[in-house]
Design a protein around this nucleic acid. Sequence first.
DNA 1: CGTTTATTGTGCAACTAAACACAATAGGGG
DNA 2: CCCCTATTGTGTTTAGTTGCACAATAAACG
Lengths: 205, 205
Amino acid sequence: MAKQIPDIVIGRLPVYLRALQQMKQEGRQVTSSQELGERLGISAAQIRKDLSQFGEFGKQGTGYNIEYLANQVREILKVNRSWDVIIVGAGDIGRALAGYNGFSERGFKIRGIFDNNASLVGSKQGEFTISDSKTMKEVIQTSGIKIAMIAVPAGHAQQVADQLVEAGIRAILSYAPVNLNVPAGVRVQNIDPSIHLQRMTYYLE
Amino acid sequence: MAKQIPDIVIGRLPVYLRALQQMKQEGRQVTSSQELGERLGISAAQIRKDLSQFGEFGKQGTGYNIEYLANQVREILKVNRSWDVIIVGAGDIGRALAGYNGFSERGFKIRGIFDNNASLVGSKQGEFTISDSKTMKEVIQTSGIKIAMIAVPAGHAQQVADQLVEAGIRAILSYAPVNLNVPAGVRVQNIDPSIHLQRMTYYLE
DNA sequence: CGTTTATTGTGCAACTAAACACAATAGGGG
DNA sequence: CCCCTATTGTGTTTAGTTGCACAATAAACG
């Protein structure tokens, strides 16, 4: 088996990719580890070493072709294709996620939004109709969906996560401000604005 | 000067605090590094070592008093008081943030929401009235606000960040999917759902 | 009041990550 | 075609982080 890549390296690749996509949109053709590093506040050596884990993508003296490198990183991250995603919870956050058009160009397609509140089920939310949570499992399994975003109140999140995992979900992005416990093999990422803010207050004043 | 605490340790403290607050709400009085670690998927030794950077908060044989430890962590993170925060951008995300009641019990108070779209200015958003971005600087300076959340389109985020920093903001939580460049002494945290999702797809399939 | 159990705080060892520094070399200019 | 400049990929070194293991000790129990 190939050498195990550190997760911290994987975590930086999406940031590199976002910067490359932006450079491309600016009409740029090539860049260097140094320029990329300056934009991102990361050392050039680290960028080179991260990329070298996966192959040789640059040219000495010249740097990296932006489009080529972006495609290589997409391939590494497996976002050179489109992943189906569902949203659970049609409150403010769920609806904001459903209305966000940034997913498609980054490798994701929203396939549905679910809620267990009967008064919301059936109503339109942008291009989506809110579905009953009871139908979630069937949708996940018939479409083979592997990724879900949880946007339900903290008190329901663990129960929702359990249902999702049981239905076959393998990656969860949770907006609920609680720690989720999931079996090995299921990945979880958390977004909790208070946590992010508290991480900065230590340094203030 | 006291020993420099690693940022990675600071980053775990809010997670510990959230778990402690939850335990308290469950009516619990004491816990141990082991129990906390199991809940959070972190080794007990790491939790003990992290906390030991700041003092001795536990009792051998017994563990930690939950309320006491939570208060100590709040003090370390400087969230044993309330920080004023403003929101810039009154789109879906800005409005969801304005309507979220989770901030107050975690040390933050939303002081205003700003947008430069004249057709939004003046309209009510929950308990807040959307203000014109032109008035932002004055509000920041007269109230001495240090923290802002950016929820504007990617193309405007850098410019908004520049204005905020110039007005005196020292910590920014950005929901815009771009890298912000800020001077030393200003902290930035980014929330970009695509980045979080792309960090997981590597491990799928 | 001694024994047992649980659990902390920490020195040290092991591991992981970042930075340094340089040989190799692509491409441009004369 | 040779020299110069820019820049990669990587071996080595340095720095940072985590885990191990245990002495110290608090509390419970008989």
